[in-house]
């Protein structure tokens, strides 16, 4: 800048009180200064951006999207595994149910056969007891008949004797037997 410009600066852009004359934007004396610092600043920003900031942020973003993709893939895989595990679980459950049913049926069948055997044994015992009882009853009945016959003969002989007759043992016996048959 030539000296006359420097001298003119005070008069051209700012008045004696320090106030702007016209628009400071249009003051030609200040333009080189702004342009110089602007270009310096832009170059500085460009180097900061292109050398440090943008590659770094770009790498972080790429890494993040990579991580997210990997995580999603892993999640998909784990989900698949979970589905498989659920299938295996369901299958195991069904198997266990079938097994349990089979065991129950077996136990039932076993119990049934045992029951049948016990029933048969009990029936046989009951039959034996019944037969025994019947025999005993028949014996008792027979002995009772004999007793009745004896008592009846004795009674009839006594009655005939009381009536003054002479009891014929043979006829009394036949009469009592005939009566008792009836």
């Amino acid at each position: 800048m030539a000296t006359e410009t420097i001298d003119a600066t005070v008069g051209a852009c700012v008045d004696a009180g320090g106030y702007a004359l016209g628009m400071p934007q249009l003051c030609a004396d200040w333009i080189p200064n702004q342009v110089f610092w602007l270009i310096l600043c832009l170059i500085a920003i460009y180097f900061v951006m292109s050398r440090i900031a943008l590659p770094r942020i770009g790498a972080v973003l790429a890494e993040r999207s990579g991580t997210i993709t990997n995580d999603l893939a892993a999640a998909e895989e784990l989900k698949q595994k979970a589905v498989e595990a659920e299938d295996a679980y369901n299958k195991a459950l069904a198997d266990a149910r079938a097994e349990a049913g089979r065991i129950v049926a077996e136990a039932k069948a076993e119990i049934q056969t045992q029951l049948d055997a016990e029933m048969a044994k009990a029936d046989k015992k009951i039959m034996e007891k019944t037969a025994e009882s019947e025999k005993a009853i028949a014996e008792i009945r027979a002995s009772a008949k004999e007793s009745v016959k004896t008592v009846a003969k004795d009674a009839a002989k006594e009655i005939v004797a009381a009536m003054g007759g002479k009891a014929d043992a043979k006829s009394i016996t036949s009469a009592v037997t005939a009566r008792m048959k009836g």
Binding site: V14, A20, M23, P24, C27, P32, N33
Partner: peptide
Amino acid sequence: LDQFIVKPLFGDGPVAWYTPTNVT
């Protein structure tokens, strides 16, 4: 418009193209 006046940061001298100013 006075807020847009370009001032040197140091001293009251004239504004040359290299002067550090409030723009700087």
